[in-house]
């Protein structure tokens, strides 16, 4: 079991990040190197400054707001929580304490960010069980939502176990030691593999690894391409 824990917590993490970063770079370059359009595609009337409206479209999803208010609420909830969760993970790297502008407990959101994300993910998943979204969906859509749901739920459970069920022996300091050891290429998993709820961390990392490796080859690349696509519309 220790070997399995080690494989998931160390080599698989490095492989996942390598695939994630190189995959994103290669996919982005491949798309952006395609020939430019011969005709303009922007919508009229144009609004300036273009970059501001591009960011407005990308981050506030006005078209979704206009056509499906309930989906918009869940989309905003999910993406805001996702952003905060990324910051929460960066805070776990001890050397990046400067990122904690407003002082608060680690982990950011106390497990509730993950809970909101899980609810939003279930909403996205159940939407795909019903037409017309069902007719448009392909297996990878379900797979990604399930992968992300599992990642989020085990990640949040770690926090709930520590806060609500007295598993304090594996604390934020243990996560920090583990993450820092990975960042500085001196992997050490002793602190995070002895507790009764260590399996939650292992499963969280395992599903996150799969998610990261799948990311560059999936529609999740919309997180990069949405800005470029909206820029096309705005001119």
């Amino acid at each position: 079991m220790d070997t399995l824990y080690y494989i998931i917590l160390v080599p698989m993490v490095y492989v996942a990040f390598a695939v994630f970063i190189t995959g994103i770079v290669i996919q982005t370059v491949r798309v952006l190197r395609r020939p430019k359009p011969t005709t303009p595609l922007h919508i009229h009337p144009g609004k300036r400054p273009v970059w501001l409206w591009t960011l407005f479209d990308t981050f506030l999803l006005p078209t979704v707001f206009r056509h499906n208010r309930r989906l918009w609420v869940f989309l905003m909830m999910f993406h805001i929580c996702f952003f905060l969760v990324i910051i929460g993970h960066l805070e776990l790297i001890s050397e990046m304490e400067w990122i904690q502008v407003i002082e608060h407990d680690i982990f950011l959101g106390q497990g509730f960010l993950g809970l909101f994300m899980a609810v939003a993910l279930l909403f996205f998943l159940f939407r795909r069980f019903v037409s017309p979204t069902k007719d448009l969906s392909v297996p990878e859509d379900y797979l990604l939502l399930i992968l992300l749901f599992l990642t989020v739920i085990f990640g949040s459970e770690m926090d709930w176990a520590r806060r609500w069920y007295y598993y304090e022996e594996m604390s934020v300091d243990a996560y920090r030691a583990y993450l820092s050891s990975l960042v500085f290429l001196k992997p050490e998993i002793v602190d995070v593999s002895f507790s009764g709820h260590a399996f939650m961390l292992v499963l969280h990392v395992f599903f996150a690894n799969l998610f990261l490796m799948f990311f560059p080859f999936s529609p999740l690349m919309h997180s990069i391409f949405a800005v470029f696509a909206n820029k096309l519309r705005r001119g």
Binding site: S137, M221, F228
Partner: peptide, 22 residues
């Protein structure tokens, strides 16, 4: 025919289905 916009549109769609309402 695979220009940059075409590739962007093909890659960006998350099949959310909002287009059906528009």
């Amino acid at each position: 025919k695979l220009t940059r916009p075409t590739a962007l549109y093909l890659e960006t769609c998350a099949r959310c289905g909002v287009c059906t309402e528009a």
